[in-house]
Design a protein around this nucleic acid. Sequence first.
DNA 1: CCTGGAGTTGTCCTA
DNA 2: TTAGGACAACTCCAG
Length: 475
Amino acid sequence: MRVLVWFRNDLRLKDNPALLAACATGIDLIPLYIYDPKGTTEWAIGSASRWWLHHSLSELRQSLKTFGSDLVLRSGSEFDILTQVIEQESVDYVFWNRRYSPDDIVIDTAIKRVLKSRGVKVQTFNGSLLYEPWEVVRAGGEPYKVFTPFWNALQKQGLYRMPEAAPEGIPHLPKIQAGPEIADLDLLPKIPWDQGFCEEWEVSERAAESRLRTFKHGAIMGYQQMRDRPDIEGTSKLSPYLHFGQISPRQIVGELLDTTGIIGGAGGLAFVREIAWRDFAHHLLYYFPDTQDQPLDKRFVRFPWSQDDEALKRWQRGMTGVPIVDAGMRELWHTGWMHNRVRMIVASFLTKNLQLHWLHGSRWFWDTLVDADLASNSFGWQWSAGCGADAAPFFRIFNPVLQGKKFDPNGDYVRLWVPELSRMPLAYLHEPWAAPLTVKQTAGVVLGEQYPEPIVDLKESRRVALEGFATLKEI
DNA sequence: CCTGGAGTTGTCCTA
DNA sequence: TTAGGACAACTCCAG
């Protein structure tokens, strides 16, 4: 008798319901990970995520080894590999934690059907959300499209979801055909662009827990205000760990609750609310599966987006000439992560000021973010573009200069990521083009040389964006 | 079915 | 300097 645990975005041992249930059977256990590059399909895993995955797999393997087991690795189509391994190794039970992206659901459903038809027992679990998409719905079973009612309903069901224990032991791994080494998967970059990643991140289940503890004893108190400050370590930075499952939302909420309620008062509740946003994004993608590349608001199918490859490239490289935008894009490029407030600013700039399709943004983020998550990413971009659920009113176009002054008030964030401007006085740091010539000279900045002129006029592009939205009314 | 309140994250202008 | 109102109209959702 053999049981197989199929690891996917749940690369941890603690609070892993599929693993725990498999261990409880006591029979020989095969911990399997299948790397499926999914060829050139649109949402094949991005470069930054591959980097994270490489380290995740190494760590998971180490953890399994401390239990006398190991990680069994395969590369190829998830369907083919899994059905093959089940056949070759005479597996009787298969356990996994569910996924919720449209393409993943198709794969998992097909696999489940085939396995069942062959008499293999399949058990699946919730390992990555507080509540699964169908567990928080309106009275008639309809999905929510507005966050606040969703959040109210979720709270009514109870924020606390008991995390599972870590397994006490992992059953013996039977002898099995050797697979590729992690290094053979070619997940790491060929040219070494990952130095900043290595400095920023420790990729492991332990690191996720330690980040959570640090956050719990520190930034959580001021989270409500400080979470908007990219110049301060005011957020948890747990997003990549959540995506890959080095930590689960249940563990997070569990850690933040004590007998008196949520730790950190208003800050703690505000943080848990963000975890609920993640559930909400999954809820939306589950019920509106085409929103990974189609606007939820169908009027936007005909929105007059611009085409400008040069502008797109400058946005991607952090060379737009708008400091807070460039700082964000460079932080992303360098570390694989960008502060949430700045994500909103660069998204507004791309879709409103540059009038470029939000899909350009979501694809770029998909490739460059270590926390790239189809549900959260698609949701965020649609929200920013104005075509998604709970979208910002059309007139809410961010002014990146004001946003910079408000949320990077000392300019530390811009100076860190845009060193060309490090000597620019604060008064002009967020709008260097407005500085008098003598000020620029003293700061050693000639626009168009060390640092570009802004590629778009903020006021004029705002006007054009408003016009674009006005045409929607007539559709 | 009807009703009415509400809706993550802003900006700009005027007084 | 600062505070308040305008900026669309619509859809969502609970009662």
